[in-house]
Amino acid sequence: MTAAIALHRVSKSYRNGAVAPPVLRQLDLEIATGTFAVLFGRSGSGKSTLLNIIAGIDPPDAGTVRIAGTDLGTLREPALTLFRRRHIGFIFQSFNLLPTLTVAENVLLPLQLNGVVRGGADPLGARRIAALLERLGLADRHAAFPEELSGGERQRVAIARALVHQPDVVLADEPTGNLDLETGRQVITLLDDLVRDAGVTLVMATHSHEVIGRADRELQIRDGRIAAVSR
């Protein structure tokens, strides 16, 4: 069986004036389909960079990235974007909801982009979104704008948006970072349940030990490499 995510000798550095300190050095990583993997490490250790590279938002300086068997390095725009919107779901620490779209519209966006629904009044899409929002406890907030939501609600919307188009891989970058402990716990539980129900591969960068405890795999990133791999 093909690994959902396979990174081989991936390197990345960011130029800052004259120096370019490496963030990732020849990193290798494979994550099997359906796995819930957590990524932890100190701030600035490269967690976000790794997630961005997996998402295809940021190209690596060297090495190969395979997602669901596809080598991202062989994809150029717009194929890369099309691949991303079909296969990847993204959850950000700062939610990154589109402030000018309602909850339902935010969730609808990936469906529309993937051509699952055309226009806004598609009954199939509407049902799927309604079910998802119901499950996330947002049934009564579908017409609200993000600024009218609490942090926990916003992140639940982001989860809905990341899952609605049934991606192969969901990437979450410290999704509880902006939430209180209790809310964070609820969000993680929901995310965990949804991901396992759908058989989706989830990679989450986090500092939370509680979250780390729920994961199938724990990946620590240090000095630009995966330092410790549990289980």
Binding site: P78, R85, L113
Partner: peptide, 14 residues
Amino acid sequence: ELFGRLRTLGVTRA
């Protein structure tokens, strides 16, 4: 910023 988020979500350049 808005455009950036849209791009992240898979809106193509075109």
